[in-house]
Write a protein that binds this DNA or RNA. Structure first.
Lengths: 343, 343
DNA sequence: TTGAAAGCGCTAACAG
DNA sequence: CTGTTAGCGCTTTCAA
């Protein structure tokens, strides 16, 4: 691509106007009334030359990058968790619709990263979406305090921060399992405790057990690490308990898949011997054997809303609500449910 | 973030040198021998001020963006196919390691898109990775002919084009199924025919059937569309055939998952009634019920190699080979295999 | 070995 | 309503 690209100068020359006018037309600057004829001449000239503005020059001059940064937990989330790609997809779509690019920044360790700083200070992005931010992330707090546009997903850290989160459906899950008569309900988290959402699912699980006067016991809890593999191993470990659980609440569907494999491999039936509930309702959840009971969550909507909120923020438009809470819903399938009632 | 960011000017002032020197030090320009003392003064000044170069200014001046563009088939690939996110992950990782950002461009219709053009002409990227490029994509060909760095994944269009592809393992799959005695083997593609890889899997399937003098019949073929859902429906349709297939070769694992659900829902057993083979060996494949026989493919390696090749291309370094072909391997699990032999 | 200075291509005051 | 012009912050050639 050594070929000289056309510049706004050439477009101006061809259209017989100044570069200013070209800029006005191409950026659709409001408050300027150009005759349609001029406008058309410019547009025609631009398309004839195949003119596309140089992004860097535009950014340098305007201070806007038309790019948003998406920060997530490195390899784990992208390689394994089926929720994230769908979130990404809708974020890409909505961003594109509004003329924004998305830069994805994968972060290994949230506690010692310069990911935000370099992206923000290098003026590469106009705003930030952070998935599952760490509650103690100081750098993020500083950025937000300084007024940098940011939308957090999944975790509410501070009510003033802009966020899109899901309402929890842990209570319906636990009510359902307890209603079926289960008394030894195990839990496998989908991530370590430093991921706030994973931790919250765990503590909610414990709270609802307590409220139902059921056994709250650490021997019924295991920590997964995003992958089906980790769910598989966690379940194997749970099956070694003296008193086996009669039900499992998995931190997410991927964990549940691994756990189901471990259960069936041990010669136990789902749900007759052990009922299983997941979380997220990934597209495959209805195609497991048996189909997985889970909580349906809206990744596409979450991505879209986060993108729209961030863009509003970037454009300094008023935000209706700083915190959007999305509904989630228990979806009962065969992996737990009617079957047990007939026992 | 209204706070004025420090510029190279201020770093220069603090270090008592010129901006040129700052630029030399920060960019590690070779062929310039600066005394370590100067170098250190600059580095110290930069870190004291928290200086991060303005990306746009740097790009404008240097002509380099340090960004690569990744083009894929919109929502479908990202939301559904488990292969893509893993590829992305490794591409992100390797890019980051070499100081490159990644811009993801999702494309709806490869036949009428300006995705490449705007990204390239807007000088937003230094190079391009295209996943499953369309064989007839003229725009892409023009770009490559013009010498723009590009690496294609999954599809070989022209031997001269840089690409990272997988060796096919269709033959081992078909050999295995045929060796087990199957005579009516069905196939569900993972995408429509315009995706070259999907098409190639189909034609290979047909070729090996033919070579084995087995029935090649369009009633045994269905077209899926990435999702498990589409595999599910395709299988339901296959099960309506007068002569049911005794084995299924699914275009990928996600399709296989849906198909397995349809088979089991119809009251049939896997592999006793119908054997199933997938493609990709997604992380969940060993946790299906029964575990899925499939072809293991190396998304992480593919992403890494593509990234490295592209960066070599961008930096005009010599490329060892224009085409990298990765090995794939049949992984036999219970969804087809030993079981049938005992029948 | 270091510094001066000329752009890179665009935007957006400001002037006309 | 349109054109002139001064930067935006950096890289890099050339000269000192």
């Amino acid at each position: 691509m050594k070929a000289k690209r056309p510049t706004s100068h050439q477009v101006a020359a061809l259209a017989g106007v100044s570069r200013t006018t070209v800029s006005f037309v191409l950026n659709n600057v409001s408050g300027i009334n150009l005759p349609d004829s001029t406008r058309k001449r410019v547009l025609d000239a631009a398309s004839e030359l195949g003119y596309v503005p140089d992004a860097a020059a535009r950014t340098l001059a305007s201070g806007r990058t038309q790019t948003i940064g998406l920060v997530l937990h490195g390899a784990f989330q992208l390689e394994i968790d089926a929720y994230i790609p769908r979130l990404l997809s809708s974020l890409f779509t909505v961003s594109k619709k509004h003329g924004f690019q998305v830069i994805v920044e994968t972060v290994k360790d949230f506690n010692k990263t310069r990911a935000y700083r370099d992206l923000v200070r290098g003026k590469q992005i106009d705003g930030l979406v952070v998935i599952y931010p760490n509650s103690e992330d100081e750098e993020l707090s500083e950025l937000i305090d300084a007024g940098f546009p940011a939308v957090l997903l999944g975790t509410v850290r501070h009510p003033e921060e802009h966020s899109v989160v899901q309402r929890s459906s842990i209570k319906p899950v636990m009510d359902h399992l307890i209603g079926l008569g289960h008394e030894r309900i195990a839990h496998i988290t989908f991530a370590a405790e430093d991921v706030a959402v994973a931790k919250r699912r765990l503590t909610s699980y414990q709270r609802y057990l307590q409220e139902a006067k059921l056994e709250v016991n650490d021997t019924l809890v295991r920590f997964g690490n995003y992958s089906a593999e980790s769910g598989y191993r966690a379940m194997q470990s749970l099956l070694k308990n003296a008193h086996k659980p009669t039900a499992l609440f998995a931190g997410n569907d991927t964990i549940a898949l691994g756990a189901m494999a471990a259960i069936q491999e041990a010669g136990l039936r789902i749900p007759e011997d052990i009922a299983v509930v997941g979380y997220d309702d990934i597209p495959n959840a209805r195609f497991t054997s048996p189909p997985l009971t889970t909580v349906s969550t809206p990744p596409l909507e979450q991505g879209r809303l986060a993108g729209e909120m961030l863009i509003d923020l970037i454009k300094a438009r008023p935000i209706a609500q700083r915190q959007i809470r999305l509904d989630t819903q228990l979806v009962v399938r065969r992996s737990c449910g009617a079957y047990l009632k007939t026992n």
